[in-house]
């Protein structure tokens, strides 16, 4: 994925770490990763930070920033368990 190993990618990695530090302890947050813009949102193919959220029963929705260091942040559903 050479094109993604670019300056943008390095910025996204730093932004991911900042977001993880801010949100990963929240009971509804299961995973924070780097992915493409979810279907139906924003610009297709754009790199975004994705905050995977457990079901609402796990608690209040955390406050999710619109972007970090210029990288858009998107909330997606995701509740994971060791298989």
């Amino acid at each position: 994925m050479p094109s993604e190993k670019s300056k943008l990618w390095a910025i996204a990695q730093v932004a991911r770490d900042k977001l993880a530090k801010r949100l990963l302890d929240h009971p509804r947050v299961s995973l924070i990763d780097i992915g493409y813009e979810p279907e139906g949102e924003g610009t297709p193919g754009r790199i975004v930070l994705r905050v995977h959220l457990r079901q609402p029963a796990a608690g209040q929705t955390p406050e999710i920033p619109e972007e970090i260091d210029g990288i858009p942040v998107r909330a997606v559903s995701g509740d994971y368990h060791p298989d």
């Binding site: 991911r16 770490d17 995973l31 990763d33």
Partner: peptide, 9 residues
């Protein structure tokens, strides 16, 4: 669909 993730499980 995602890489370089950090999870709390």
């Amino acid at each position: 669909t995602g890489v370089e993730g950090i999870a709390q499980l």
